[in-house]
Amino acid sequence: MSVELPKLGGKFIQMEDEIGSMASIIGASIGGLKSMTATSGPGISLMQENIGYAVITETPCLIVNVQRGGPSTGLPTMPSQGDILQARWGTHGDHPIITIYPHTVPEIFEETIRSVELSEKYRIPVILLLDEVIGHMREKIDIEKVDKNKSFKRKTPDVPNEWFFPYERNSSGVPAFADFGEGYRYHITGLVHDVDGFPTSKPDQIDAFMKRMFRKIDDNLDDILDWEEYELEDSEYMILAAGCVARSAKQAIRTLRDEHGIKIGLLRPKTIWPFISSVLIDKAQDKKKIFVPEMNMGQLLLPTQRFASSICDILPFNKINGEAIYPHELVSFIRRNI
């Protein structure tokens, strides 16, 4: 980005630490730019406080987290899916968030564009969660497929200054964003605030603000959620997996179907937060078992159990040794457990 951005008139800065990186992209977004940062491991922990700031101030921005193994310095840079729940709950306080989990390099390309759009549209930080396996991979992308003239613009206010409420409660749940310098002089704060942007401690105003923050996401799941179904049509068994594990799962499914006659398919959330709960409930109905392989001790397992444990059996497969999950491991695990 340090090479490409200046050529296009964009701005790049290497900040002193990840706390600063997160802060500066929020500042840039307030100034009207689409902004992003990227990190891994300890860096995402450092970003969490200011991710919460972006949530409460409803400032669009994109955070890429290429996960690495272990807490602390952990396993630089070996694969893990240890940050799935941190992406949801990493910053303190109750809050909504959007997290997108691509599984190939071309998909990273597409989903980065979609993530920025979602972020601008719903005024929320979006986390693009990647696996190291994909992060360090080279695959072809078809740039021609991208419509370069299509550029999502955030909704900005068109009312006179005196009528402007920076956090108004409108029907969409998403207030228009006034970029700094456009003549709307208003206040942005990480304190819970009322429609005018100023801090409040009045329960009815707090309630209205907090609920709107959730509602703007909950009311738009049709637009935000995305997932892939692979060989699910006639399947008796289902794998629920994300990122690089889903790639291994696809190959395992080929083997299990072609060589062992097992009817099995994959449900792969692309939007991982909010969770694809209604899709899961629907797909689980006619399944005998759901397998949840992941490179952690059961983070995707939790929402899967929450929504599907009353429908069918759910079986985790966990690997945390710094290696990817291989297709043959899934093949033998699934064969042993059906």
Partner: peptide
């Protein structure tokens, strides 16, 4: 009104924009 200690980093982003 940003987070504790980070005003300069927020301001850096704003100034670039």
């Amino acid at each position: 009104h940003t987070t504790h200690g980070r005003a300069l980093a927020f301001a850096t982003g704003l100034k670039l924009a």
